[in-house]
Amino acid sequence: MKVYSIYILNKAGGLIYQNDVNPGLTKLTANDYLVLAGTLHGVHAIASKLSINIDGMESHQESTANANSALLVSGRSQDANNNKSGLQSIETDLFNLYVFQTLTGIKFIIITSPNPGELKKSYDSANEVFKQLYIVYSDYVMKDPFYSLDMPIKSFLFDTKVKEFVT
């Protein structure tokens, strides 16, 4: 799996980082990148609202009341509205797109070469990239005093580190 491009979206859906790490994709205009980011953000949000709700609203209310004790016991959020991964991947003949949303609402998006193999395997390798990306983001963006939250990322150290693990 070859990573073509990496996008990072802030929690409002604004594009804060875009890097074509490997050649292969046609360049878009700066405006188109922003539109693409915003669209993905919206689709992700809508997709997370799609859910099978057999028991109706009442049971839903009950489940949120117990959500916190469940959260404290298991350490995992089971609330239907919290951090649901609405859209995880888009697969086409020409590229695959994977989305990963952190608990704080930042979205990492990677566009990779299509890999017509085992589906789970490509998920795993995408997750490995996301893990690395998240680590590098937390280190080189969050610990940079010259970065202001939700603004475009201009750190060159971050650039270098990202290039290191995708190439």
Binding site: K143, D144, P145, F146, K154, F156, L157, F158
Partner: peptide
Amino acid sequence: FISIPKDY
């Protein structure tokens, strides 16, 4: 972890 922006 610090990268100095160009305008600094």
